[in-house]
Design a protein around this nucleic acid. Sequence first.
DNA 1: AGATAGTACTTGGCTTTACAAGGTACTTAT
DNA 2: ATAAGTACCTTGTAAAGCCAAGTACTATCT
Lengths: 119, 119
Amino acid sequence: MKVENTQVQMRKGIIEYCVLHIISRGEVYASDMLEELTSAKIMVVEGTLYPLLTRLRKAGLVDYKWVESKSGPPRKYYTLTDSGGSFLKKLEVTWNELIESTSNILNKSSKTNNLADPS
Amino acid sequence: MKVENTQVQMRKGIIEYCVLHIISRGEVYASDMLEELTSAKIMVVEGTLYPLLTRLRKAGLVDYKWVESKSGPPRKYYTLTDSGGSFLKKLEVTWNELIESTSNILNKSSKTNNLADPS
DNA sequence: AGATAGTACTTGGCTTTACAAGGTACTTAT
DNA sequence: ATAAGTACCTTGTAAAGCCAAGTACTATCT
C-alpha cells in the first residue's frame, strides 16, 4: 500500500467541493480552475477535471455557455445553477462536520505512542 | 448526482487515516473502532472496515493477535507496526496540507455569498 | 442434546471515480 | 500549407466503499 494512493483517496470528493466553490464565485472556464486548484496545491489534471465538469453538468448542478476567445478556440464558461447552489451548501455542512469529526478522533491521542516525535 | 455520493467520496481516505490513528492509541478490535467512528459521526459499516483492516495488514501497516472473549467468538486485536507509524505520520502531513489548501479555496469567497463565515 | 440468538469476522459483486494517454477542433504565426 | 498553442473530450485501468450474504464461535433456552 502506497502513501500516494491514500492521498488520492483523501482528495476525492474534496475536488468536487472545491470546483463547485470556484464556479460559485463567478464565471470561469476549465483552465482557470486548473490554475487555481494547482496554485492551492490541490493537484488536478485535465483527465480529472473535464469528466468531473461533465458529470456536474449532467446532474444539473452547473451550466455553461460558449464564449469566443481571441487567442484560441472558444471556451466553456461555467456557472452554478440553483440546485448546484443548494448542493454546495450541503457539501459545506458535510465538509465542516467531517473536519470536526476527524479532529475528534485525532485529538484523543493517548499515552502509548509518540508519533509526533520530531527527531 | 446525489449528495450522498459526494459525501462518500469525501470520507474516502479519511477513514483510513482515522482507523490508523485509533489503532495507534492502543489495541482495539473491529467493533471498538466501529463504535468510535460512529460516535464521532463518521459513519462506517462492516463491509468497509473489515476489508480496510485486511488491506492494512497485508501492507504491513498493522498487525493483530487473536484474543479469546468470554462473550462470543475470539477477536482480532490490532496494533500499529513501525512502518504503520511512519505511514501515519505522512498521512498527518497530507491531511493538514489538504485542510489548508481547501480553506485557501473556500476563503476566496466573493461578493455573492458568505457561506464560509469565519467568525 | 438440539435449536436459537448474538457476536465477530469474511467474501463476491457492484458502482463510482481519479488518472493516464491519446484524440479532436479551433486560432495564430511562419 | 505547416507548425505551434490552446481548449475540450474520450477510452481504459485500477482502487475502494458499500451491500448482502455467508462462516464460525459462544451462550442460552427448550
